[in-house]
């Protein structure tokens, strides 16, 4: 083509072309962000990312399941026997060694995530050999401190961030 042969191919290092390309690339990247960020949790979801639980009405020995960030959290009012069992375990016996004191703020209240660390099922309370929790999916057993003792799960039940606002009120998250 005559036009093509009489024109030198644009010099790629030409500053103008480089600048235009760079500014264009910045624009595309900036435009992409809203389209990525829109999939993140929205304001209404974030507003529910912490909850306040009234624990005053939970009798000793009971487990109450509350919904937090779309999943279950167990609030367990432990009996003296359960506390004693949890505290007297040797760390060497544990797959994921943690003392009971590391897992609770007040010994009578155990607050753990209700998601089995194996594959995400919800374990059943007061069941299994250790009378903590038993996961019906693959038989993982947790003790009264929510620590994994037997079965395929690798880790203890997670302890969410929480704070006692008063003797009867806990803020989770």
């Amino acid at each position: 083509m005559a036009a093509a042969t009489t024109i030198e191919a644009p010099n790629r290092r030409d500053f103008l072309f480089l600048a235009t390309g760079a500014v264009g690339a910045v624009g595309v990247a900036a435009l992409a962000w809203p389209f990525i960020d829109q999939m993140n949790p929205d304001a209404s979801t974030l507003a529910l990312s912490s909850i306040e639980v009234d624990i005053g009405a939970i009798p000793v020995g009971q487990i109450v399941t509350v919904k937090w960030r779309g999943g279950p959290v167990f609030v367990r009012h432990r009996t003296a026997k359960e506390i004693e069992e949890a505290q007297n375990v040797q760390l060497s016996e544990l797959r994921d060694p943690q003392t009971d004191a590391q897992r609770v703020q007040k010994p009578e209240w155990l607050i753990v995530s209700g998601i089995c660390t194996h594959l995400g099922c919800v374990p059943i309370g007061h069941e299994g050999k250790y009378e903590g929790w038993f996961c019906p999916c693959h038989g993982s057993m947790y003790d009264t401190s929510g620590r994994i003792r037997q079965g395929p799960a690798p880790l203890n039940l997670a302890v969410p961030e929480y704070k006692f606002l008063s003797d009867t009120k806990v803020k989770i998250g």
Partner: peptide, 15 residues
């Protein structure tokens, strides 16, 4: 930003 980009594209086009 768009005025800068459009300006740059205009001069690139002229070139």
């Amino acid at each position: 930003f768009m005025f800068v980009l459009a300006g740059l594209l205009y001069f690139t086009k002229k070139r």
